[in-house]
């Protein structure tokens, strides 16, 4: 829809001046949101920010590189417990968070190796196995999972006399912005282009000089790094960790978020994260019917918009840009 006239323009984060205004307006709204809404809105929003990071990472893997993974919960658990143990040892949180991402990323590389040989569902089952293995290791080794009472993660003391919820909101907001920008940068760098090339046609990519081995592994590492960071933030947010929080269901939630949001779309990941958190939360008084509502919304969205929420957003933007012409 846009005519990109130069490479510099292609690299620009925001191309239209009006878009700048909109984005600035949106950011201001988000900054003001927790001040005017009750506590639980800020709480839910903070949770969405945390999930956003993981979903963005998985979109890099699933959407951009085209590798299916069902092991997200495993990376999440590794990140969360790494962070939990480090912060209990008194390591400052920025360092702890970084380590959570890195440790998770290292495991990502390990899981990435089978991806060099396996494809589609066969890769999915390997990653699924990884998720289950991580869960069982945490369950069975109490020194890893913090004992049978679970791991209490010390929460940060909010500065400037902010309330806990308010602080959580801004803290995670910051990370969400940071990782959104990082993702935009990755996809417009050589690395991102290599990911897309691998997804579209791996043999052609290889022929063009993209090292499959290296970039598939990098993709796994980067996406697991994101998951690790999400894990750390999740631990910090809840203040408590136990292996039961990281089952297959968690992997599925993140997978659904990626697809519902829209493959290979950063804005899509944001919407996907919001979707998987908001739907069960908003309808939580419907008791047994919560999964049914969740399922129906998933089906409706994907029937009418196979590209996910991002597809709808894209078309809406196009409509307004061309208005009043059709």
């Amino acid at each position: 829809m846009d005519l990109v006239k130069s490479y510099r323009q292609e690299l620009q984060l925001i191309r239209k001046p009006w878009t700048r205004v909109w984005v600035a307006f949106l950011l201001l709204m988000l900054l003001a949101l927790p001040l005017v809404t009750p506590e639980y809105v800020a709480h839910t929003a903070a949770l969405i920010f945390i999930y956003m990071i993981g979903v963005l990472g998985q979109n890099l893997l699933i959407g951009y590189t085209g590798q299916i993974s069902f092991g997200q919960a495993g990376f999440l658990a590794i990140g969360a417990f790494t962070f939990g143990h480090l912060s209990r040892m008194g390591v400052p949180w920025p360092l702890g968070l970084l380590c959570a991402g890195i440790v998770s990323g290292i495991f990502g590389v390990l899981v990435g190796f089978p991806s060099l040989r396996l494809k589609g569902p066969y890769l999915a089952i390997v990653t699924l196995g990884f998720g289950i293995a991580v869960y069982q290791v945490f369950v069975n080794y109490e020194w890893l999972s913090g004992g049978r009472m679970g791991l209490i993660v010390p929460r940060l003391t909010p500065p400037f006399g902010l309330s806990e919820t308010l602080f959580n909101y801004y803290f995670n907001f910051l990370f969400a912005i940071l990782f959104t920008l990082l993702t935009y940068n990755i996809i417009s760098s050589y690395m991102g282009r290599a990911f897309i090339a691998i997804r579209d046609n791996d043999i052609a990519a290889e022929a063009m000089g993209v090292s499959l081995t290296r970039y598939k592994l990098i993709s796994f590492a980067v996406s697991s790094f994101y998951m690790g960071i999400m894990g750390g933030l999740y631990g910090l947010f809840l203040g408590y960790l136990e292996p039961n929080m990281f089952t297959f269901a968690e992997s599925i939630t993140i997978f659904v978020a990626v697809i519902i949001g829209g493959l290979a779309a950063v804005e899509g990941s944001i919407m996907g994260a919001a979707f998987v958190i908001l739907v069960p939360q908003v309808f939580s008084s419907y008791k047994e019917m919560v999964p049914a509502i969740f399922g129906v919304t998933i089906i409706l969205i994907l029937i009418f918009e196979p590209m996910g929420l991002y597809g709808r957003w894209f078309k809406m933007r196009l409509y307004f840009r061309n208005w009043p012409y059709r």
Binding site: I252, F255, V256, I259, I260, P291, A292, F294, G295, V296, I298, I299, L302, I303
Partner: peptide
């Protein structure tokens, strides 16, 4: 695949 997941939830 996600559509089947939706059916499963329902």
């Amino acid at each position: 695949i996600i559509l089947t997941l939706g059916l499963g939830l329902i």
